[in-house]
């Protein structure tokens, strides 16, 4: 695979390095002529209704999961066998009960903690690693950079989902191991985006201009390059969070993720599969829909971020 290729082994929808702010920042010692880049981006994001709604939905899910101990009406693990597989709208159990008589709503709330953590934590941890690797490889263009990119090429040969499954399978199930597996899987994708953006930005005229006006390498990296690469990576990472929600739940579905009876959206879907033959669809349907909605929210927020960070779409 050649270097100009975007890392698109993904169903993520922001595969190319997104258009990012390339407005030269004001020189040191001059007051900025316009509001800061962050503020402009926030303003632009706030105007994007779809993205704002997606952010609200996501915040709601995060808060609900955080406060699961307060919000959940029942235990996520102990069931009432007499109410087994009662459907949606059962008194006291608005989302029904699963095959072991456990309250689906309570499991959903508690499960959110694991499902979100397993997807988001690896992205957050890999972010600085990928940023560093991409900057080094893209800026120095030396042997070290070459080596990094060759290694990543090898990792790219494994389809993302397959690599995650293989790693999780050999590491063994459990929350920590799944996060490790997902983290390793993410490194090539995120590093590639950081690398591509770095190479693109270094080739642009404003970097040349900054160099010509006597900026030091350190200045150049910190003030011109890093903000642009971070923006690009941020957009991509947001989208990846959405994908990882789906993948992480998938690992649990296959039994190489979070260990039952710990609640998790993937495990809940898998539990639902076994009672599907009994004609009870709600057990599998509800967690799947939640995964879909959360993943979609991340993607929409990513789209919104990409537009908001594009100076051509910002207005003062």
């Amino acid at each position: 695979m050649n270097e100009t290729e975007a890392p698109t082994g993904l169903p993520a929808t922001a595969p190319t390095a997104p258009e990012v702010a390339r407005v030269p920042r004001p020189r040191r010692g001059q007051p900025p002529a316009r509001p800061s880049r962050t503020r402009l981006a926030v303003r632009a994001f706030a105007r994007d209704r779809v993205a704002v709604v997606a952010l609200a939905v996501l915040l709601l899910v995060v808060l609900a999961s955080l406060f699961a101990p307060l919000l959940a009406p029942f235990s996520p693990t102990a069931g009432d066998a007499s109410l087994r597989l009662q459907g949606i709208g059962t008194p006291g159990h608005p989302l029904g009960l699963d095959g072991q008589g456990r309250d689906v709503l309570s499991r959903l709330l508690w499960g959110g903690r694991n499902s979100l953590a397993v997807a988001v934590v690896p992205v957050l941890v890999v972010f600085p690693i990928a940023l560093l690797a991409g900057l080094v490889a893209g800026y120095t263009r030396g042997h070290l950079g070459d080596l990094i990119m060759r290694l990543l090429d090898v990792l790219f040969a494994f389809p993302l989902v397959l690599l995650a499954i293989a790693l999780a399978a050999v590491l063994g199930a459990g929350l920590g191991n799944v996060m490790l597996a997902i983290g390793i899987t993410l490194i090539p994708y995120m590093a590639r985006v950081a690398y591509t953006t770095t190479v693109q930005e270094v080739g642009k005229e404003y970097v040349e201009a900054a160099r010509a006006s006597g900026a030091t390498t350190r200045d150049l990296l910190l003030r011109e390059l890093v903000p642009n690469v971070v923006s690009a990576l941020l957009v991509y990472a947001t989208t990846l969070c959405g994908l990882m929600i789906v993948v992480a739940a998938g690992l649990s579905f296959l039994g190489v993720g979070v260990i039952p009876p710990t609640p998790d959206w993937g495990i809940m879907t898998s539990d639902g599969a076994s009672v599907l033959l009994e004609g009870k669809f709600h057990v599998a349907t509800i967690p799947g829909l939640v995964i879909l909605v959360v993943a979609l929210s991340f993607n929409l927020i990513g789209d919104g971020l990409r537009d908001a960070l594009d100076p051509r779409k910002q207005t003062t």
Partner: peptide, 23 residues
């Protein structure tokens, strides 16, 4: 299409099994 890209495959398969296959 964006929503489609976010669909968990395993779940979608189950829904199809349930609706088109079993029901």
């Amino acid at each position: 299409a964006l929503a489609g890209a976010c669909v968990p495959v395993y779940w979608f398969g189950l829904v199809l099994v349930g609706v088109l296959g079993l029901s």
